[in-house]
Structures are given as C-alpha cells and as structure tokens.
Design a protein around this nucleic acid. Structure first.
Lengths: 215, 215
DNA sequence: CGTGGCTTGTGAAAGAGTTCACAAGAACAT
DNA sequence: ATGTTCTTGTGAACTCTTTCACAAGCCACG
C-alpha cells in the first residue's frame, strides 16, 4: 500500500463500488469478484483492483472480496464511518427538494439545519429540518459542528455565503451555483450544475452527426 | 484543426468558458485573452488554447478573442445554436424544482413537457410546463421531437423508463437516479448524484487529516 | 499432499491529458 | 518601413491514468 495522490476518478468509482456493495449486501450476496464489481459500474476488473490497491489489500486471491468487509472498508476510506453533519444554505426550490431527499441520510449525510434570508421561509421546519435566518449562520455552523455546507442560493450571493462559511470551521462546500467561488485552499469545493451536464449531452448529440474529420 | 476524440474534461471546460463569455458579453467586454479565460475558470492559458484548438482557430495573435465571436463559436460546438428540446420524467421534488429553474432556459434548454405516474401530479401545469400521465410518454416524445430526457424518477423505475425513452428517438438522458442504466450505445447518458458528490467531499475532508504516507 | 482452476495485487507498457516553450502573426508607434 | 510588444496556435515533453500480463496465493478435489 502506498497513499499518494488519489485521483478524482478513483474517488468517484469508490462511491460507485460502495453503492453496488450496499445493494449486494441487501440482496444477501456474500462474496464478489473484481469482474463483478467492474461489470456493475461499467469499468474493467483491472481498474477495480488498481483503485482498491491504493488503499490496501482487501480481497482473497482465488476468492474475491467479502461484500460486508469491502463495504465497510470503502465507507472508512470515504470517511463515512459516522454520518457527516451537513447544513443547507438557501431553502428555495432546489434546497427544499434536497431537504426531502431521504437518500442523503441513508448514504451517510445528515442535514442538521438550513438557512434562508426570506422571512417567509425561515422560522419553520421543512421535512423536520429547522430553517433559520441567515444572521444565525456562523453561530449555528460552529455550534452544530457542521462539516459540509450545501450552497443552493442564487449565484449572486454564493460567493458572499462561501466567505462566511469558510470562517466557521466548515471543511467542504457543495455548490449548486454555476459561478466559480474564490475560497481558501483548505476548503474542498465541488459543483453541481444541471445546465452544464445538459451542455455535455448536447455536445455528444451534435458530435454524433458531425463525426470525425482528420486533417 | 483536427476533430478527434474530445475528452470529457475539454467539453466540461468549454461549458465553463461559455458561461464566462456570456457574463463578459453582458458586462460589455469585447475582447478576451486566453489568460483571462483561464483565470476565470481556474485553469491555465495553455489549456484554454489547447481546448479551443481542437475545433479550429478562433483568436487573433497578439490580440486575443472577440468575446461575441468566441461565444457564438462555442455555442455552435456544443450544439446550442437553437434551444434543445427537453422532457422531464418524474415530477416529484427534484423534478418540480427543475421545472421552475429558469437558468435552464437562458442556457439553451427548453423543458417542453413532463410526465408522472401519479394522478395527483399529472393533468396540470407546473411553471407552465404540462405534466402528462406516463402512458403518453412514447407518443409525446416523438410528437414533440424531444432530444434529451431528464430522468428524475425513483431508481426502481429508472431503467424501465430509460428503455421506453430509447425507443422514441431521444438522443440523450440525464439521470438523477444513482443506479447504472443499461442502454443502447447510441444513447448519451450522464448522471447527477448529490450523495456521490458529498462522498467525494467526505473523502477529501478525511484525507486532509490522514495525509500522505509513502511505503 | 499435490494438482488444477480461479482471482487478487502489482510492476511495466500503453494511452490520455496537461504543461512547456517558442515560432508565427497582428497592431501600433516611430 | 522597421522595431517593439503582445498573444495565439501547436509540436514536444512531461505527468497522470488506464490497461496489460503474470506471479503469488487460496480453495477444492482427488
């Protein structure tokens, strides 16, 4: 084993393996091979083994991997031994949808609290999560030991919220605002952007027509 | 110029350039250099030029790129000359949020129609988009010449819907269901999964503690 | 207890993607 | 015209990721 730089693609695949392993676990499967795992997520067996080999040796030669054990190992690698404490900023359409999204909890993320500027929105609970006014942000992020913030605000205020969040001990941000965020290098940031994914599809669709042209 | 295999990362960056160029266009900026573009999305100037060089030559040496022209060129590359016709399957929490998400339209995607199995949901309009029962799916996908389907159904039915969609001339699917989809190779598919992104953040957060260990 | 069938873990090779570095223009001033 | 300054476009070098291929190990069965 040898912990170096782990690539983003490897981490992404670890998540996919984990999903698969949880399904297998529910289905009662006890042992799985790298071929099965590869087939289940659409990659190669060698890739699966290389991915895992970054973190140690989890299988038995000639046998494969014990589903429960590998599941637990990957959960540990991904830092999911206990539920992660998450907060949501922006209880608009997307934000509210996330509050009701039960899959988050089953996959190890607990939305503890939400924030919004709009008095129409704060002061009540949405799907059991209290929505608070923005002026309580810093205070509650620290008090509730929030690790990750989901940013579902209009793009115009995303940067400002990101700044306030950074100062409150939060370690990661998942942003639904397309705009780039300037943040402290210690803060992990990811983006989700529906339009960007659709643009990717649009490109593939057009390319299918135009095809290759060497020059 | 030389159209080969374009990498996913390149396409992703093209989207980011496009966003930036639209903002610049709105702000009245007329000319932009590869350095500016790189700074705006967090990459290097060489990368910007390499990305663009896949598709032709869009700038003037010594001068940079004309914002309006480059914007139009990238829109054309991404197949966004006219709005893409999109349908939504599953008008639940996430689905409804998407129907109200105006950014989609401004970025070139028009949700023409939505579908749901639940009689409580179909038969009305949500944010001006008609929600229809599932049994009209194939018929309307063809009639409305839908190019892309957004899948926001429970994971259990995602595969079944994907099958029905494939048979209706649709070219791409954007799925919010974590599960893998078996589809025709001609169909372009992308996934969005909040929990997967959170898992990626969780990994980075843990890694920050454990740090590197060479062996 | 040895042989055969199977699957892991991993160096080495191949393939992709990114960065470097510089020649080829383009505008402008003198 | 000529020189200066600036920025693109692009081979070549480099780095990172994936694939290949095989020794090492485990189990079952005779």
């Amino acid at each position: 084993m040898n912990l170096r730089k782990i690539s983003e693609s490897t981490v992404r695949r670890l998540s996919l393996y984990l999903n698969l392993l949880r399904d297998m676990s529910d289905a009662g499967t006890e042992v799985v091979s790298s071929v099965d795992l590869a087939g289940g997520i659409g990659t190669t067996a060698a890739q699966v083994r290389k991915d895992l080999s970054n973190f140690g040796s989890f299988g038995k030669r000639g046998q494969g991997y014990v589903v429960e054990d590998l599941r637990a190992s990957i959960e540990s690698i991904l830092g999911l031994v206990r539920p992660r404490r998450v907060a949501l900023v922006g209880a608009g359409k997307i934000g509210s949808a996330l509050l009701g999204y039960r899959d988050l909890r089953t996959r190890g993320f607990e939305i503890i609290v939400a924030f919004d500027i709009d008095p129409e929105k704060y002061g009540r609970k949405v799907f059991d999560v209290p929505v608070l006014p923005m002026d309580q942000l810093e205070q509650r992020l620290s008090a509730d030991r929030i690790e990750i913030v989901i940013l579902a605000t209009p793009p115009a205020v995303a940067q400002e919220v990101a700044n306030r969040v950074t100062a409150s001990g939060v370690a990661g941000i998942l942003s639904f605002a397309a705009s780039k965020l300037e943040t402290d290098a210690t803060l992990a940031v990811r983006w989700m952007d529906v339009a960007l994914e659709l643009e990717g599809l649009s490109f593939l669709i057009s390319a299918a027509g135009n095809e290759v042209e060497e020059s």
